[in-house]
Amino acid sequence: MTQIKPEKTNRQNWMAVLAKANWTDLAMLWDDFGNKPDFKILRPAETGLIMLRARTGAVGAAFNMGEATVTRSSVVSDSQIQGHAYILGRNGLHAEVAAEVDAALQDDALHQVVMARIINPLKTAASNKKHQAQQKTAATKVDFFTLVRGED
């Protein structure tokens, strides 16, 4: 019952990086980013709920397992590019900054420098953190061996 998932677009990828980013890291990187466009808020940060779905027996029919808080925000840059963000949790500033970075990344003039100075460092930080956790988990792997008892 494996589903073939469509390849993610670049935009889906960077939006995922922004949503998963550590807020302190993202705030610092965006603060240090000079020459930002001006942004107007289209939709002020709003916190709501999404119902999370799981699958019966991990792979079967969907059911509603419980909700999560989500915060969304939309902005528009001075060159009329819209940026959007939906992130888990209730941090409105995180959603607004993520929406601003999303708009900046869609601007051809800014795309490369925002990737280099915001997205790539966040991605590296996330993958380092994940790798650390994986290494600690790997140390708890069970190496089974069988004791042969008695004579054959």
Binding site: I50, M51, L52, A54, R55, A58, V59, M65, T69, R72
Partner: peptide, 14 residues
């Protein structure tokens, strides 16, 4: 007190 934005995709626990 919170509004609902909708339903997630089913979690892919695999």
């Amino acid at each position: 007190t919170l509004t609902s934005f909708g339903y997630s995709q089913p979690l892919n626990t695999s």
